[in-house]
Simulated assay, not measured.
Amino acid sequence: MRAVIETTHGDPERAAQVAAALVPDNTEEMATTVDGRTVRTEIDRESTGGLHATVDDYVVNCAVADRLTKTQS
């Protein structure tokens, strides 16, 4: 099972900050990259349930990271 999540942020610096906040929580089955204003994370899991749980956690973490970078701008 694989999910690809792309989020767009205000500018490249902010996208890099969001990605930097997310990477420490990545497992071996996750890869996060930045391209301009876009953060892209690929998640691979053996099961649908595992993928669902990981995506759910990731989305919450991404929302928090995005909010925190907004308050710093």
Rank of each mutant, 00 (worst) to 15 (best):
D25I: 07
V18D: 00
T48Y: 15
L22M: 00
A21Q: 07
D57M: 03
R40A: 08
Y58S: 06
E29A: 11
H9M: 05
V59A: 06
V60Q: 02
M30P: 09
G50T: 11
T27D: 02
V39L: 08
L51P: 13
D11P: 03
L68G: 07
E29M: 09
M1D: 12
P24G: 05
A53R: 10
Q17I: 02
H9F: 08
V18L: 05
L68W: 05
I43C: 06
E46M: 11
T7Y: 08
Q17K: 15
T27N: 03
T71N: 13
E42G: 14
T48A: 15
I5P: 01
L51N: 04
V23G: 06
A65W: 10
V4L: 11
H9R: 01
K70E: 11
M1L: 11
D56I: 10
V64C: 10
G49C: 10
P12D: 07
L68Q: 12
Y58A: 04
V39A: 04
A63Q: 09
G49T: 12
N61S: 04
D25L: 02
A53Y: 05
R40G: 08
L68C: 15
E42K: 10
A53W: 08
Y58D: 00
V59H: 07
G49A: 13
L68V: 12
G10I: 07
R67F: 13
N26D: 00
A20Y: 13
A19N: 03
D25H: 01
V39G: 10
L51C: 03
D35R: 05
K70W: 10
H52F: 12
T27A: 06
D66H: 04
V55T: 06
T27H: 01
